[in-house]
Design a binder for these strands. Structure first.
Lengths: 348, 348
DNA sequence: GCCGAATGTTGAAGCGCTTCGATAGATCCC
DNA sequence: GGGATCTATCGAAGCGCTTCAACATTCGGC
């Protein structure tokens, strides 16, 4: 392997000069710079990551802790991960992939060893084991998701309460007065992941405000489970004309079942989904949906930790609270329309 | 941060002793060992990753290059990634996540900087840009997928040819004489990813052998695309009674469409899918399927690079060819049965 | 009871880089 | 035109760890 010293010798300068050319931390005359850059290219030099990390005590690595669960919608996770990796590269950083497997211990290990300069945690629960460690670690961190107590933490998430409100607003605007929520798997609620509850809160709030009746049922992604949930919904509230689906895996079975039961979408029943745009466009009836801005979330999380690390330009500010809720965006597609009984939008 | 030296002082031994306790590379009396371990615990010591990498020229990091594409089935990718990360941890390694984005340049960077000790490449194409670099890099590497020329490389993949044969065998065994393949998206074939072609080869080979007629149609995951594909299949070969589905995203729409068209599964038409078991179990009709052993693939890839790094015990042997094709396993579920016209399994 | 071999521990030399303080010229101002 | 100020470069001191050669000590064998 080519070393800094060899490049320096080749270019006829000192090692520190080469280092400064690389980092740009001191002014170097353009003649010298070019000579050094030429040598670097000729020798095919790549700075040694370990030596760099040791000397500068910065690894240029961001740790990304992913959940290991299978009940979360995987494509969204993946999209976030890719966005994190891509954005990190724009900031000259790489991404270390940690699974939830190891739990809080992973945080300790990564922080303690200086393996990563910063951390991004996905799938944050309301009371997350990892948060105490993250708080006391003197490393910038960002959460994707919103814990019960975000004090001293940087968080980014979709504004799920607003999302819930938006869905209800849209349905109510079409005259629906009886709606049902096909929620996430029961395990998601039991784990207190927050986003599901927040969506529900938003839905309930807006429904109360607009005089819409709401029925909520958790639902797993399997065909059977969706069938059962749907049966219970129509059993309990036969007048239901609007559906909000939060569990992405339930979408396909749901549409399939509705068709089978002779319920036309959107003529008999309107469906709003909370899912990535790609999914919404691929279904038999294109879905009116609120997109989960996975990419944006990953990108913002990286930008947050970079800012906090003072690497993005601003001074360090680990410990400052910063909660960023991305505004939901509802895209009207083919799955929603006027409620069958009602005459159209409410006046006002 | 606590350093080795501080631990040594605290335990009343030299730094090298602490290091040997940690690495186990020399015998240390149990008294000393315990004293050192106690100090480590009391001080909350974590070895500095950078220093370690510099001194030992091993980073204990494996790079995982993932595709960035969205036309591959994401859950499988994710499962592989998680398996890689989990297995890597069992070998005291962490995983660096690289996206396809950067292309071959990423290989050069990671290898050149000593950031990673080994590499695992996913979604390998038949003629992959990255392979020349991987070959000349003196780092162990493993591919998930099989390139056209695997010389000098370690590869692991499902035996897709055998998978194709297995599907045909199963359908032919039920008396089906006219089958169709709902393939991957056209882009997958254009990119020459190999696995799709190999499946097809296996299907054609076995079909020829058993006297089964085969029609192959690429197909994207959208409802529309599946509808079109299906229409063309039944238009061209109205007698089709067996379907092999390779594009996982097409499965749900496919079942939904068949039901809509009044084709009962498996009474009128049998469906074999190539997909993760979890998917096969969640559909309206549980699918007879050949599982994609994502976890096994990830695990084996890690074990391969660990062996090649001589870290797993065996001596280094980068440069040796090693192709491991995992045998397919077909699980019979509810979606396949006797061909409607035929009387059952062929004699013999 | 002495020799050679195990066994356990240490000191010191790096690994390749960053960064600080110093230095030698070039440039400026009045 | 000489001190003050910049600018461009260098030398050297580490960063925290691994590892090698060397040094004590203990032990078994005869």
């Amino acid at each position: 392997m080519v070393t800094l010293a060899e490049v320096a010798r080749h270019a006829g300068v000192s090692a520190s000069t080469v280092s400064y050319v690389l980092s740009g931390k001191r002014t170097i005359s353009s003649g010298t710079r070019q000579r050094v850059e030429q040598s670097i290219r000729e020798l095919g030099y790549h700075p040694n990551a370990g030596a760099r990390a040791l000397a500068s005590s910065r690894s240029n690595i961001i740790a990304l802790m992913m959940p290991l669960r299978t009940d979360m919608y995987v494509p969204v996770m993946m999209e976030i991960a890719v966005a994190v990796a891509t954005t990190a590269r724009e900031h000259q950083h790489d991404v270390l992939l940690l699974t939830g497997q190891e739990g809080p211990e992973a945080v300790r290990r990564v922080v303690g060893s200086g393996l990563a300069d910063a951390m991004i945690l996905m799938d944050v629960e309301l009371e997350d084991d990892r948060l105490p460690l993250v708080r006391e670690a003197r490393r910038p961190a960002a959460l994707i998701g919103l814990p019960a107590d975000p004090r001293g933490l940087a968080c980014v998430d979709l504004d799920f309460a607003a999302t819930g409100r938006l869905c209800v607003e849209h349905l109510a605007g079409h005259g629906h007065r009886d709606i049902a929520v096909v929620g996430e798997a029961p395990a998601v609620y039991e784990r207190h992941t927050g986003f599901a509850e927040r969506t529900l809160d938003g839905i309930r709030e807006k429904s109360a405000e607009l005089g819409v009746r709401v029925l909520h049922r958790p639902c797993e992604g399997s065909y059977e489970s969706v069938a059962g949930t749907l049966a219970r919904i129509f059993d309990e509230r036969p007048g239901t004309t609007g559906l909000v689906v939060q569990n992405e895996s339930a979408i396909e079975p749901l549409l399939s079942l509705l068709r089978q039961q002779g319920r036309a979408v959107p003529e008999d029943i309107s469906v709003v989904a909370i899912c990535p745009d790609q999914v919404a466009g691929q279904t038999s009836v294109a879905l009116t949906s609120v997109a989960i801005p996975a990419q944006e979330m990953g990108r913002r999380a990286v930008e947050m930790v970079m800012t906090r690390a003072g690497l993005g330009g601003a001074p360090a500010m680990t410990g400052t609270e910063q909660v960023e809720l991305l505004p939901p965006r509802l895209t009207v597609r083919a799955s929603t329309g006027p409620a069958p009984a009602a005459a159209g939008p409410l006046p006002g």
